[in-house]
């Protein structure tokens, strides 16, 4: 009896050969594609729902990337003011200014001497007469630094400020970047929002594929029973459904990338008009090769996940009785 039980095992092994295995997978994949093509309307509707669900977060992601690209130029507007200690000679201050310019990561520096600062203050504040009454100039010398684009992130700016603060003749270094911080935190919120929406819609894609595959399994209930009676293994029965899910995801991902491409094509004309009004050379950027690949691969994975869930939940229940 035992030897014969082994013969069943042996048979299980014999039916497996690597070349045949891949050939069968290709056959099943093509058969699933044929099945999708045979009911074009319902298949297209499923694929369109998947495509739109994915195009929405992916499109928002592209939009944010574009905004980040535009605003990266604005970060240079952050300024650092170095207030120099009282009694420092002008020579030392100019020396420091020259040192800072040599540091790199610096766009430009400007030296404001106590005298010119006082004059400017007099002019702008309207306290001219009152200030004349002072016998000493209370204002310190100031070096205004505009960091370059390379040092535009808040961490880099903070680092720069700290290193400047360590200089013995510097009384106080102040970073004027409140609005940069605000912009970054707004972008952060939007980014997180897009991620949440993206996660929800990815779940929706899994549910959509899962439900479509579930209906497919129900429609082919008798076929599954018959093939099980003839000796089909579970993986043989599972395979076409998994491939259907993968194909839904793949086609949905391709259509989603096309949708995003079309939207960017529609917007790019008016965006370049607007940016030329600001005399900026900015142009809308699309998903790019990497982004498109990620979108399609992700979509395929989601389709696979959806069909896997449906197959795992519903196929096992169908047993001949």
């Amino acid at each position: 009896m035992k030897t014969s039980n082994k013969s069943v095992n042996q048979e299980a092994k014999n039916s497996f050969s690597i070349k045949g295995y891949f050939l069968r997978h290709i056959q099943v994949c093509l058969a699933s594609l044929g099945r999708i093509c045979r009911s074009p309307v319902s298949s297209l509707m499923t694929i369109a729902v998947i495509a739109i669900s994915l195009a929405l977060p992916a499109g928002m992601h592209v939009l944010i990337k574009n905004i980040e690209y535009v605003t990266s130029g604005w970060d240079g507007a952050a300024q650092i003011s170095l207030f120099i200690k009282k009694g420092t000679t002008e020579e030392k201050v100019v020396n420091l200014k020259n040192q800072i310019e040599l540091m790199g990561q610096i766009d430009k520096t400007e030296y404001i001497s106590p005298t010119s600062a006082l004059e400017e203050f007099k002019r702008l504040s309207g306290f001219g007469q009152a200030l004349d009454a002072l016998d000493k100039n209370p204002l310190p010398a100031v070096i205004v630094i505009s960091p370059g684009i390379e040092a535009s992130s808040p961490q880099q700016l903070n680092q720069l400020v700290e290193s400047l603060q360590d200089n013995p003749i510097v009384d106080h270094a102040q970073l004027d970047m409140q609005w940069v911080k605000r912009l970054y935190s707004i972008m952060d919120i939007i980014n997180r929002g897009v991620m949440i929406v993206g996660a929800l819609l990815a779940l929706a894609v899994i549910l959509i594929t899962g439900n479509t595959i579930r209906l497919d399994i129900q429609n082919r209930h008798d076929e599954i029973l018959i093939t099980k009676l003839i000796g089909a293994t579970n993986s043989f029965i599972r395979r076409p459904f998994l491939y259907t899910g993968i194909l839904y995801g793949l086609l949905g991902g391709i259509i989603a990338s096309v949708l995003i491409g079309l939207s960017i094509g529609l917007l790019s004309d008016s965006v370049s008009k607007l940016s030329s009004l600001y005399s900026s050379g900015f142009e809308l950027k699309g998903l790019g090769v990497d982004g498109t690949f990620t979108l399609i691969a992700g979509s395929t994975a989601l389709g696979f996940a959806g069909s896997w869930v449906a197959v795992g939940k519903h196929l096992g229940k169908i047993e001949p009785s």
Partner: peptide, 30 residues
Amino acid sequence: NGVNISKLRKSKIPYLRRNIGIIFQNHQLL
């Protein structure tokens, strides 16, 4: 065919069935 049904693992059932041709009253065709 030398295989004890009561002890047969579920994953091995398909290979047992390949030794049997089953004919049904209602044909069970696709």
